[in-house]
Design a protein around this nucleic acid. Structure first.
Lengths: 231, 231
DNA sequence: ATTGCCTAGAATATCGATTATTTTTGATTT
DNA sequence: AAATCAAAAATAATCGATATTCTAGGCAAT
């Protein structure tokens, strides 16, 4: 009864939304699996409407698929979808970076440097699970790419960028390096992108960013994950 | 018992969502006005959860703003927002058009020609309300711009394009020409864009499309609407 | 044995009522 | 008269239960 939620602007539905979103992005729920409302209610100690609202929001963001009368599922992995996603991401991310460099100021540079440093100091994988990527690294990686475009002076473009980035995150998280041991020096790629950006070299920075995104996809496409799941 | 809704895959919530969305895009609800759940329930003869779900979906699409604990409002008009929106739309629409031209095939050309013809034959405004734009023309206009990019072979890009287009639609609908009687020949602009696209002239088509979008915004920004509403 | 139909069980979508929060109102004090 | 605070009204958020739709598995017919 006495439920003291004094935090202003907070909502049970928002909390559940964040929990489920985090579960999906952190690869704690497999792509394609069903999200049954009943069990989720029980898990969060919350009512139907709350969970439905959270799932509805996620489905508008393309992290969840909603089939009327059939319920909700985590968006499935899909080869063609990843290729489309990559093309679109390359355009949006490089556009945002271009604008950011054109509008660049000191606080933007600072946030890029800071995010890069943090990313470089964060272990890529947990000691106990050397296959997957750690939550901490994923967060730092997201923060670095967000920082790169944070100076673009377009709130709308930054919001539009988030969806595709998150969609790609699911692929990154589920791709067990497996057979394809990465020969890339990912941190070097990040460093070069940041350097070029701060040096105001639009052409170099955007082409490095493009190569970075495409290379990641190439790795994912050849990973056992995308070849083992037929759909 | 009364099973009025035998349509598979339909949902009360989807219907309400479409109704409200249509109300917003057709300028039947003023920007910034509150969307109280109670009255909407009564109007549609439907329960709270249904309306909330519809509004949640709309707020993810940026047509509605959701402030926790404070309810929902139609997204307000905003000068800076329109300028940002325009910059982003120019990039996304021209990108999609570029891809469409590169992938062009006969059925794409056909749909462009068809949409252009329909648009040209649709009266811009109703006889009884010569100030506003007619629903039919808005639909035809949306269909034409959708047709232009329909050949881009990227489902994701087409979906991403829809949000900003709809956001801009609210501005188009609420701008009473007022003092600024359009000296443009809008249909000529559409025709030239379509011609260039079908002629595979990427540079011309995209720059005409860009000019088209920017010109519309320029008109809106000088209309009395954007100058009378301070926020 | 395979196909198609039908019934029980499970899950989704919707409802009506309850609880919690915000806004308004109006009395009280400075 | 202006400002402050407290009760009341309005509105948002959540809950528990009902109605509807889908799914699975058995049974009959070919």
């Amino acid at each position: 009864m006495g439920q003291l939620n004094s935090k202003r602007g907070s909502t049970r539905s928002l909390e559940v939304y964040n929990e489920i979103r985090s579960d999906i992005l952190a690869a704690r729920i497999p792509p394609g699996s069903r999200l049954k409302v009943g069990p989720l209610c029980e898990r969060f100690g919350v009512s139907l409407s709350v969970v439905r609202e959270a799932l509805t929001r996620l489905s508008e963001q393309r992290l969840v698929r909603s089939e009327p009368q059939l319920g909700f599922t985590v968006v499935p992995l899909d080869r063609a979808g990843l290729e489309d996603l990559t093309r679109v991401r390359v355009e949006i991310e490089t556009l945002a970076l271009r604008w950011a460099i054109e509008c660049a100021d000191l606080s933007w540079e600072t946030s890029v440097v800071a995010a890069l440093y943090r990313l470089g100091r964060t272990p890529v994988s947990e000691p106990d699970d050397p296959n997957g990527v750690s939550d901490a690294w994923s967060d730092a990686h997201a923060a670095f790419h967000a920082a790169l475009v944070s100076g673009c002076a377009s709130p709308l473009l930054m919001e539009l960028r988030r969806g595709p980035y998150d969609s790609a995150e699911i692929y990154r998280r589920w791709a067990r390096p497996g057979a394809v041991r990465e020969e890339r020096d990912v941190h070097k790629e990040h460093t070069e992108i940041a350097d070029a950006a701060i040096a105001r070299d639009v052409g170099l920075a955007t082409s490095l960013l493009e190569a970075h995104i495409r290379q990641t996809t190439r790795t994912l496409l050849t990973s056992d994950l995308m070849n083992s799941t037929p759909d």
